[in-house]
Design a protein around this nucleic acid. Structure first.
Lengths: 148, 148
DNA sequence: TCATCATATGTGCATATACACACGGCTAAA
DNA sequence: TTTAGCCGTGTGTATATGCACATATGATGA
């Protein structure tokens, strides 16, 4: 059962607040991934690339801090990007550290994926409306702060 | 930097709507998992058990439908529950199907975990306030409908 | 009956998430 | 300077997610 915008009517929420946000997260991730598909990267990977673009060169722990993601998760998430030659990891000055840098291919991929990302962003804004989107962002931000 | 409730001030949102909801989802999941820890199940697993309790006996595909989760994901998510003897999977009348049922241990675990879950639910309600929580639920429900 | 189609499930592959632990190198205190 | 502790990283283990493909079986029509 679809409405005029091709979307489906809201599904009955769970009594569990956690399940509701997990379902929404899966749906939105799927929505973005579908739109990003031609670029060859997922929204998770694009997020890494876009953060890296702003702070490279940077170490693994520092990037994990910036992205607010677990360090070991980031470590493994980099693997497909290294395999696809989008980033490189080299030893840092402090031999304990590793420098992450973007490759040329990483830059062009990030740029083309970002154009698709713009469309996804615009779709969500159209779908929720500017006011509701702002409310959502605020609530999500507060929820994230539920955990140190 | 914490406020009176022991929580942290909201963190700066990303420009990416998808990243925001993914971060919030990780945080809330972590919050629930921490509280559920003494019960030995995660919020994802408790969600499965609570759904199952209401509809058992049920086949895999049907439960996946009810839970609005991918069938193959559900299939694999049942493994730890079978291993821990919380559910059992047996052939159904139609030999193509499989019947999922809860064990006695599954019932007691579900009940004790649900008591902890109540606390998590109450914490979130206190944290956001009833009004904002209702707004959130509505927005998340609509977001889930972004995808068929 | 038998060929065909639909349905239910399983699995290979890839990604994402995060805790516990180990290891090696830096740094500061004795 | 030695040593004790901190810091950055890697990895084993476990869970979670979902697409593509394979298999097996019920159901249906010629």
């Amino acid at each position: 059962m679809k409405n005029n915008n091709g979307h489906h009517y809201p599904k009955k929420p769970s009594p569990c607040n956690c399940l509701n946000i997990r379902r929404a997260s899966r749906a939105v991730t799927h929505f973005y991934d579908k739109i990003l598909q031609p670029s060859g990267v997922t929204i998770s990977q694009l997020s890494l690339l876009r953060h890296l673009k702003q702070v490279e060169p940077i170490t693994i722990s520092e990037l994990a801090n910036v992205m607010r993601i677990d360090r070991t998760t980031l470590n493994r998430n980099m693997k497909p990007l290294v395999d696809h030659d989008l980033i490189t990891i080299t030893p840092g000055q402090d031999p304990r550290t590793r420098q992450i840098v973007m490759t040329q291919k990483g830059t062009t991929t990030t740029n083309s994926a970002s154009q698709l990302w713009d469309k996804a962003q615009a779709s969500v804004k159209d779908y929720l409306g500017e006011t509701d989107l702002a409310v959502l962002v605020k609530l999500l931000s507060k929820l994230e702060a539920l955990v140190p």
